[in-house]
Design a protein around this nucleic acid. Sequence first.
RNA 1: GGGCUCGUGGUCUAGGGGUUAUGACGUCGCCUUCACAUGGCGAAGAUCGUCGGUUCAAUUCCGACCGAGCCCA
Length: 830
Amino acid sequence: MPSPALPEKRWSIDLEKSIQEAHYADNALYTQRYAFNPDSGKEIFVIDTPPPYPSGTWHIGAVAQYSMIDVIARSQRLLGKEVYFPWGVDRNGINIEFVVERNTKRKMKTYDRAEFLELCRTTIEEFTEAMRHTGKRVGLSCDYDREYLTDAPDYRSVTQSIFVELFKKGDVIEDLRPNIYDPVEGTTIADAEVERLPRKTKLVDVRWTCEDGTELVISTTRPEMICACGVVVVHPEDERYTHLVGQKVALPLETNGREKTVNIMTHPSVKSDFGTGILMVCSFGDQNDVAVFRELGLTPFQAIDLDGKMTDVAGPFAGMKVIEARNAAIEALEIQGDLVQAVERNQDIPVSERGKNPVEIILLKEWYVRQTHIQEKMKEHVDEIEFHPPRNRQFLLDWMDNISIDWPISRRRWYHTEIPIWYSEDNSKVIVPPSGTYVQPWRESPPSGSRVLDRVTREDLGSYDDLEADLGLVTGEEKVFDTWMDSSNSNLFVSGYLNHPEVFEKAFPTAFRPQGKEIVRTWLYYTLLKSTLVLDQPGFKHVWIDGLGMDPWGRKMSKSLGNGIDADSVLECGAGGRTGSWKVKGPDKTVSLRANKIGSECFRLWKACDAQVGDDFHINPEEIEKKYFGVLTKLFNVARFASQFDVPTNLDEEPKHLEPEDRWILAEFQRTMNSVEAAWSDLDIYTATQGLKTFGTGLLPSHYLEMVKSRLYDEDIAAAWTLHRIVRDFMAAFSPVCPFFTHHISQTVYGHSSVDIDSFPVQAFSEVAAGTEEGLRLCKLSTELQDFNSQVWGAKKESGTSLNQPIQGIVVPESLVEFEGTLTRMHKLE
RNA sequence: GGGCUCGUGGUCUAGGGGUUAUGACGUCGCCUUCACAUGGCGAAGAUCGUCGGUUCAAUUCCGACCGAGCCCA
C-alpha cells in the first residue's frame, strides 16, 4: 500500500499552530490572498466590522462572533467577491482614561491635557497588540496592513468633517439642556456611564401650604431642591387630591429670584402609594423630573452649579455643597415646624461609574445631533436593508419608536475626538476647518482654509484667512465627542468616504454590517442615522445581528459572577500537549471544566454549526471538544485515506466510464454543494456548515468509501478520480469555516490551497447534475442504500460475523440492482 | 417597573396546523483493531415551558402567565 501524501496521523493543535504561523508569516502571500484590491473588477463586498475596544481581555463571545465574520469574509471571497475585511480598533473613550488614572493613581484633570493624551495612547497601544494576536490566533483574514484606529488623525478627521457638514446643514445644534453631570470630576457623562449604588438616605416629610390654607405633606429625599421646584403633581386618578389640582402651593423654604408658589397638576408617572402620593418636581432631581419638565413645558431652574454647589436661587443655602445644603434645609424646616418626620431609608442612588460620585442633572450648553425629524425617512431606509435573522430588525424599530429627544454628542473629556470648532471673540461667529483635516481646537488655531460661519444662521461669511482680523480673539472648543459619534462613521470610513471617493462610489451602501444585538440601539442606530442625515441612503445592504456568548448555564459572563472563560485559553487548549481546565462559578457551585484539545479550527466549527445567527449561545469548552473535534478527525481521516491514492492528472475532466456508485455519490455531492453555495450566498453559515458536515462525516465515508475500497486498492481510475474530486472541492467549500485545516490538506494533496480559490467549485457532472432526472433518481436511492448497508452490518453483528467476513442469505433488493456487484463485493455476500 | 427576544429528550439543536417530531453530544448494551475507538451496530430517553382561546385538527397561530436573556428606567 502506498503511503499517504498527508503524513500526519491526525489533526492536532500543534499542527494547526504551525500552519497558522506560516500563513501569517509570509506577508507577500498574505496580502495577495486577503488584502482589499478595489480595482480587481470583482463585485466589492465591504464588511463594516465592529472595531473592538482594547481593554486587556477580549470577551470569548466577541471572539466567536468575530470568527463568524471571518467565515462570511472567506465565503464571499470563495464566491468571487472582492472582500474588504478591515481590521479596525476602537480606541476613543472613557475606559482608557480610567485605566490611566488607576495605573498612575492620579485624576485626569490634574494632568496637562497633552501629557494625559500621550499616556492614554501608549497604554492603549499595549492592549491593542494583544488583540491583534488573538485576532490572528482565531484565524481572521483581515487586511491588517490597512489597520485603522479610531483615535488616529485620518479616522478622526472623517468624524470632524461629518460634524461640520451636519452643522452647516443645521442638523447639528447647540442648546442648553439637562445633562447628567459628575460634579466631583467636573464632566458630563453618558447614561451608559451611570450605575446605581445602595446608600442610606433620609426620607423627609415636609408640610406645604396651599393658597386656600390646605396643608399637604410631601415626602422627598432631596429637600435642598425645593428651590428648583417647578410643579407639584399627583396621579390623575388619585381621588384624595382631585380637589387640589389647579391650586397654587407655597414653597416651604426661602428662595431667591423666583416666584414663591407653584401649581398643582396631575401626571401619570406619580406613584400614589409612595409617601403621601404627592410629588414635587424639581429641575432636576432625577430623570423623571426631566421628563415632566419637558412634557409640561416648564422652565427649569439652575439650582446646582458646575462645582456641585447651590446657586443663588437656593437663597440662604447658596454656595453650599449639595449635602451641606440638604442638612441645612432639614434643619431650617425643623425650626419652622414644617418637618413632619424624617426616616432613614435604603435607596439606590445614581453615581458615576468612574468616581462613584452621586451625579446631578444640570442644565448645560451642549452639542446635539437632531434626530427626531428624520425618523420616517430612516424607517424607509431600514426597510431596504436585509436583516439576518429577519426578526432582529425589530430591536431597531422598537428603539426608533422610542426616540423622543435629540442626541447629545458633546463630552467634557479628553481622550476622544475634539469638536472641530472655534468661536469669535464676540461669540457671534464660528470657524470650522476644511473637510479632511484633523484639528485640536483646544491647542491649535484654525488651519488655513477654514470657513467662518454665522453661529446662528450658519451662513458662510467667507474664509478664515480673509476674515481673521475681524474676529478678535478666537477661542477653540474644549469639548469632545461622544465615542458613538466616531463609531457611527465606521461604515463610511471603511467604504472610502472622503478618503477614496472612487471606491466609495462602488462600495456604498456598505455590503455587510455584523454586530451583537446589545448595541443595536447605539452602534447600528447611530450609523443608520448618519447615513440618512449625510447621504439620505440606507447604510447597509445586509445587517447581521448575532446573539451573545453566555456561560454554560446561559448567564451573561461577567467578572463579578466569576463565570468568564478566557478566549486565548480555549484557542491554545491542546497546544504543546497542554490540556485546558476552567474553574467556572455555576448557579450552585464552582464547576471544573476540562478539555484536551480545541484550537481555532474546532472553535470556529463549533460556532458555525451549533447555533443559528441571532440566538444567544452557551460557551462550554468541554462540549466544543466533544461535539466537534471528532468531526475534524473524521474529515482529516477521509482526506488522509484518499491521499494514499494517486491524484489523477486532470481532476477537472470527467473520466469516460464511471461506475454506478461513483455516479450516485457525485449526484449526492452535487446536491450538497448546490445547497452549500446557496447558503454561502445567503450569508447562512449554519446551513452551509451543517450540509458539509453531514455529507463529509456520513454518506461519503460510511457508505461511498466502503463501497469503493476494493476498487481503490485495485487502482481503479474512476474511483480515485471521484474520491479526489470530491475531497478537493469539499475542502474548498469548507475552507471558510476551517481555513487552516482545509489549506493544509488541499495544499499537501492537490498542490493548491483551498484559501486561494475565488470561485465556488462548479459541479457539472454529466447526467447526474442536481435537478436532472438521473441526478434526482440517484439521490432517491440514498436512503435505501444506507438502510441496506445498515441492515447488512446489523445482520453481521447479530450473527457474530466480523465485517470483513462473508455472510450468507442476504439479497440486494431490486431497486439497488445497479449496485449489486459493488455491494456483493463490499459486504462479501454469498 | 417598561419594551423586545427566546423557551423542543439529560445537554445543544432542526422543523413546522394533520398519520410513529430532525440531528448531534452524553448515557446504556454489543461489535471491532484491514483510513478512522476521534470507529461501527443497536437501545433507552420529549405530554415540543404552563394555562386558556381559534380550528375538524396545535408542539406549530392568538392571549395570559411562568422562566431565561438583552436594552432601558
